[in-house]
Deep mutational scan, measured.
Amino acid sequence: LRLEVKLGQGCFGEVWMGTWNGTTRVAIKTLKPGTMSPEAFLQEAQVMKKLRHEKLVQLYAVVSEEPIYIVTEYMSKGSLLDFLKGETGKYLRLPQLVDMAAQIASGMAYVERMNYVHRDLRAANILVGENLVCKVADFGLARLIEDNEYTARQGAKFPIKWTAPEAALYGRFTIKSDVWSFGILLTELTTKGRVPYPGMVNREVLDQVERGYRMPCPPECPESLHDLMCQCWRKEPEERPTFEYLQAFL
C-alpha cells in the first residue's frame, strides 16, 4: 500500500490517493489515533465489506491497528460538496442534479434492503467520479466515533443540521433518520452546496425544527421536489418515504 497524494483533511483524519497491490488506484482514509476503537472498527469493517453495490464506494481493505487505515475505490472528482461548490458546479442544471440524487437514493435503497443504517448521509460523504457518477461513502463509521465533541451530539463536530430530530435528541438512528438526511442533501444539491438552514446555528436549528420549522423551497427548485424534501422531514419517522420510493420518484 503506497500513500501518494494527500487529498484532504477532516476533523478525524486525512484522505490520500495511493496504490494498492502495486496496480490498483485507491483512496486511503487514515484516522487520528483515539477516534475509534480498533476492535469496534474491525467489526464494522466486516459488515462494510459485505455491502456491495454500484452506488456505494467499495471497501477494499482495512488496517485495524492505530493509525487505522481504510482502503476504498478511488473517485476522481472528490466529495459531492466540493464538486457542487467548484468550477463544474456552476454548469450543473436541475436534470443532472436530480440524476445525482437518484443515484444516491439507489445506493441508499440497497442499504435499506440490507437493514443497515448510514448515520451520516450528506454531500460531504458522497463521492463523485467521471460522468457525474455518484456513490455513497463512509457508511456506518459515524457510530464508532468516540470523540466527546461528537458523541455528545451537541458538540461542534456533530452534523446536527443533517440529523433527524429523534436521532439528534435521543440517539434513535434508523434508515428513517437517513431519509431525513437525504432530504437535507437534496437542498445541498439544489443550492450547489450551500450550508443548510443558512444564518442559523446548530442550537437554533434543533429548537426550530422541533417546533415544526422546515426549510423553504430553494430558488429555481420545482415545488414537486420541495414537496419530496418535506416528506423526508415528516416528524414521525414511519411517515417518511422509503429510499425505494425516493429512487422511483426521482
Rank of each mutant, 00 (worst) to 15 (best):
K235H: 11
V128M: 04
A124G: 05
G78A: 07
Q103G: 10
W162M: 00
N125L: 00
R119Y: 01
G86R: 11
G18F: 07
D178K: 00
L141K: 03
E220C: 10
E244W: 13
N148R: 06
V128I: 07
I184L: 06
L31H: 05
L246M: 09
V62I: 04
C11D: 02
S64L: 03
S79L: 01
K235Y: 09
L80Y: 07
V15A: 06
L225W: 08
F243T: 14
F83N: 08
G78P: 02
K176V: 09
A137L: 03
F158E: 03
Y213H: 06
E236Q: 14
R234T: 10
Y245A: 09
P67M: 03
F139A: 01
W16G: 15
R172G: 11
Q58F: 10
P165R: 10
E66A: 14
A45I: 03
R214W: 05
N125A: 01
M17L: 13
T191P: 01
K85W: 13
Q43V: 05
W233S: 08
E236R: 11
D99P: 15
F12H: 04
K135M: 07
E239T: 12
F182N: 00
C217V: 10
P38C: 13
C230T: 08
R122T: 02
F173L: 04
E65I: 13
V62G: 04
E236M: 14
T30S: 07
K29P: 01
L51T: 04
V179T: 13
R203I: 07
M48Y: 03
K32R: 08
T23C: 09
G140R: 01
T24M: 09
K6H: 15
L81Q: 11
G78L: 10
A45L: 02
T163A: 02
S64T: 06
Q247A: 11
K49V: 03
W162I: 02
S76C: 12
E210A: 13
R214S: 06
M229N: 07
I160V: 15
E188G: 02
F83D: 05
E244L: 08
L141I: 02
K235L: 07
V71N: 03
C221A: 08
K77H: 08
S106R: 14
E14D: 06
A124V: 08
G78Q: 06
I126F: 01
G86M: 06
S64G: 03
V209R: 03
W162E: 02
V71Q: 01
V26G: 08
K32W: 02
E236Y: 13
A105Q: 01
D120Y: 01
T88L: 10
R203P: 12
E65F: 15
R203Y: 14
M215T: 06
Q208K: 11
V57C: 10
W233M: 06
P38Y: 12
E54R: 15
C11F: 08
E149A: 13
C134G: 06
C232G: 07
P67I: 04
K32H: 02
M48N: 05
M48T: 02
Q231R: 10
K176E: 11
R172Y: 07
V98H: 14
L51P: 01
D178N: 00
D138Y: 02
H226M: 10
L42K: 04
V209G: 03
L127S: 02
L81P: 05
A156V: 04
L186W: 05
P222G: 05
L246R: 01
K235C: 15
L94Q: 06
A152C: 07
R194P: 00
M75T: 04
P216R: 11
M108A: 15
